[in-house]
Design a binder for these strands. Structure first.
Lengths: 363, 363
DNA sequence: CTGTTAGCGCCTTCAA
DNA sequence: TTGAAGGCGCTAACAG
């Protein structure tokens, strides 16, 4: 007699079809009772694991829809040790790049019938660790993460145990973790080479912070291109605010060796640099040529349209998540993780000095 | 290399005394056994519900950290009928506006110690319904949702039962659901009035689709302002693609009654209109004045900087989520939902014809 | 203050 | 093909 104790209002022993008021959600045994079968039969009909007599199955189906029964996913997850959910940890959601990544993750998860538990780390390794731990306590079946800056890190196999993890956009130190990146270095290098082809000899790199993997990698590409051309570096890594960016730029531009071209490390730096250039009355590309790393919706409609390195944000999220599901479905812990590097595109618009009426995309 | 060396697939059937190998996660009774107490005592130490002798508590704490025990949140949720998680449903994550909203939601949830299950509806009521249902099966304690366009229907109390729901950005038809909106109509009206003050008599509204609540509401504001000024409407609702927008704009601009000013319905429309204007060689604000609904990161760096109505995206997400937690904590089902309308700001830059060097924000 | 009992809803295991 | 038992990890409700 399962007769749930708290007979508040609707605790009829015999469920009478729709009489089941919205008080307590119907359970599998409610269905079983109504259909006159055992709970296991209901379970089987639901999961299709083992054949059930057609007639019985129909009775069960009827009972299910009469009661409007829905399996309790929480109980399932609890019982089965797998929650059909994955965790997603990203630095911020207000950054369109990260948001695009996240979009792809949720999309792929939905295709696999999984739920996504999302959280933001605010670029803080401690928060990130705590959130990952929290997700693990919720028995997520896997985690995709854009690791917080330089979290060398607290994100290790030890924490995750046998739960699969895939890092993307930025790597983690643990070599058993899969990682999906883009060609940061090669992309930066190519666009600097392009600037050099335009005849520039003094090219500045305006960056956010070298402690971010992606930005450092881009800087390395910039450096490499300059070295190969026998040119000098000129970099700044404090584009974290409008003020600092403006100050730095003003300083650079008044010297005799003022740069004639700029490469920014990411969209935030681009924004601050653009704004500073505007303040200073410096025109692109006549006074200075410009290229940015990371494309964004409006890059085509600024004045002039911006030449950028375009990263496949959604693609990266998609690949990372697919990889995660591979791991989840295989169920084995990898000895060594994959390292996938996705190609970037160079989008030539006008800020670099090109005259194309429409953007030219180089793969 | 970080010595992760536990024998991967081999480690089972080891003595299960205190030598807890990393195979099975430690449970509360493992802790209890090690500390020499009952499971309830562990539970009490963990939850601080009932006083526990200091000495005992210490022993338990020691055992917990020795085993690196973490409570199984899934079991807790299952047992307690509440999951400490909320659901978030939005149309897309790649739209920066929605992403900002989502950011605020996750932030507030974290402050309350809740997890967020996120999903995208792709503006499809069916998907939305299915996803909401799915979340309910996972026993979320509440749901915040930006309803899919015209989903007047499927999101109802009937579906959610006693689970609190808050809609934001767009309302739902069910009057018992709380809703948080912004001043779409008033904002549009005010900015059109501003355009009129600049002397414009023929102002066009370029919109995405009238079937979207927000866009329709903005259109109503536009209409109202025109009516009060005794001017004629001139609207287009097909800015869903570059092509259609361009065609429509070209058409409008060649007539004798060509508009001298444009208001767009949202950022997407803004983008297509800007692009079209560029194609057509029409200059702002000399040839045509421009104002857009919804501010965005780069609006200040387009040529010219854009005058827009700014919506408090994060604020809206924050208010909606706070409201949800009010409901969750109170635990009562509201007879009638709140309807909160947040103010917008008018950001005057140059595209409307203003000459300000810096943006002027009107509250 | 602390322990025991009894499930939450589901599915694996075993028996019929 | 179907059903009964048992337990996943945790915590209310009661003892002691």
């Amino acid at each position: 007699m399962t007769e749930v104790g708290e007979s508040q209002a609707g605790g009829k022993a015999k469920p009478r079809g729709k009489a089941q008021v919205a008080h307590r959600k119907p359970t599998m045994s409610d269905v079983a009772r109504l259909a006159g079968v055992g709970t296991m039969t209901v379970s089987r009909v639901l999961n299709g694991t083992v054949p059930v007599a057609e007639e019985t199955a129909r009775r069960v189906q009827t009972a299910i829809s009469q009661l409007n029964y829905r399996p309790n996913e929480l109980a399932r997850a609890f019982r089965g040790q797998k929650s059909k959910s994955i965790g997603l940890i990203i630095p911020y959601l207000y950054d369109p790049f990260f948001a695009n990544c996240a979009h792809a993750v949720t999309t792929v998860a939905k295709e696999h019938g999984y739920s996504v538990i999302i959280t933001t780390s605010n670029e803080d390794p401690e928060t990130e660790y705590a959130e990952a731990d929290q997700m693990l306590q919720r028995n997520v079946d896997g985690v995709v993460v854009i690791p917080a800056s330089l979290s060398h890190s607290r994100l290790t196999r030890t924490l995750f145990g046998k739960t699969p993890v895939v890092a993307f956009d930025r790597p983690v130190s643990d070599p058993t973790v899969d990682v999906v990146l883009v060609q940061n270095t090669a992309g930066a290098r190519r666009i600097v080479e392009h600037l050099i082809e335009h005849g520039h000899q003094r090219i500045a790199f305006m960056g956010l912070s070298r402690s971010l993997f992606t930005i450092n990698a881009r800087f390395m590409g910039y450096r490499r291109a300059l070295q190969e051309a026998g040119l000098h570096e000129d970099s700044f890594f404090g584009c974290g605010s409008q003020g600092e960016t403006l100050t730095s730029l003003k300083e650079k531009l008044k010297g005799l060796n003022a740069p004639t071209a700029i490469l920014t490390s990411n969209t935030l730096a681009t924004r601050y640099v653009l704004s500073s250039l505007l303040h200073l009355g410096v025109k692109m590309p006549s006074d200075i040529a410009f290229a940015g790393f990371d494309d964004f919706d409006m890059a085509e409609f600024t004045s002039p349209p911006l030449t950028v390195v375009r990263q496949p944000a959604q693609e990266m999220g998609r690949v990372a998540t697919s990889l995660l599901f591979d791991r989840i479905e295989r169920g084995e812990v990898p000895q060594t993780g994959n390292r996938i590097v996705l190609p970037v595109e160079i989008v030539l618009r006008r800020s670099c000095g090109c005259k194309h009426r429409l953007p030219v995309v180089i793969h």
